[in-house]
Design a protein around this nucleic acid. Structure first.
Lengths: 140, 140
DNA sequence: CTTGAGCCTGTACCTGCTACAGACCCTAGA
DNA sequence: TCTAGGGTCTGTAGCAGGTACAGGCTCAAG
């Protein structure tokens, strides 16, 4: 009730940041690179947001959490914005992203194997001989 | 035998790149950021490398392959260069790197689980309803 | 009336490279 | 001897995906 006597409370950039947990500057960055739309401005040139901006930013952040690149996010948004996106199209994007996630996991697992088996040979003593250094030095 | 009549064949930047498989420009970059030493120069100001540069660059590349950051590489090199590095010190660095590798794997596995279980619900049809979009849109 | 908070803009910084422009230098072939 | 082509040198800009700051407005509370 406390805002009844003046224009309805609008969301400014800081509000959007707080509501979504997004960094303040990142919001402007997303606008610059075109994944967030340019919002209307108040008379004092302040950005004015509404519920749909909140929803879109949440969408973007959720997609980023799932490891989609900003390019992929743009593709997803284009499909959604087109209104005529199909489950098949979205599934295609998600599947190719899934493949790259799995490739990264495999890479890291390989690294983990090499690293842990090497470290396991360490004595951990105050001696200069170290299997890790040997592994790095070897011209395998 | 073919170089006997002039000064011993020296390695230039391109040779070092070919021998190690490192990108030409990356060598200069590593020098700029201080992980490769500044090599001596020829009379015409060309960088002149030798075996030890080859060995050091291989060391760096191998560490990078194992996912060490350049900062971590710098630490490893400092220990090695110090001459008095101990197995315990190196093991410490390797172990903390290993922990971050494992953390990344866990992150990606979580992403993989969410993504694959969501995609599995897709019909893949030409319909606008899509579980992936729903998952991204939901204010969970 | 001042102080602090918020917003605006542009720009620089981060990691780990990669690529390019514009200048030299050197060697082999015609 | 000239020239074409490669190599090298320097500095700088670009990529992703942000983050952070300076310098200037505006606004509300005390």
């Amino acid at each position: 009730m406390k805002n009844r006597h003046r224009s309805v409370k609008v969301l400014r950039r800081g509000d959007l940041a707080r509501l979504t947990g997004c960094n303040l500057e990142t919001i402007r960055y997303y606008e610059n690179i075109g994944v967030m739309p340019e919002p209307p401005r108040s008379s004092k040139n302040y950005r004015v947001y509404d519920d749909r901006h909140v929803a879109r930013l949440c969408f973007i952040m959720r997609a980023r959490e799932l490891g989609f690149t900003l390019d992929e996010v743009r593709d997803l948004l284009a499909l959604v914005d087109g209104g005529a996106q199909t489950c098949g199209e979205v599934q295609g994007l998600a599947n190719s992203h899934l493949a790259s996630v799995r490739a990264k996991i495999d890479d890291l697992k390989r690294i983990e194997r090499v690293l842990s088996s090497t470290v396991a040979q360490c004595t951990g003593d105050d001696v200069p001989e170290c299997p890790v250094i040997d592994a790095l030095t070897e011209v395998t």
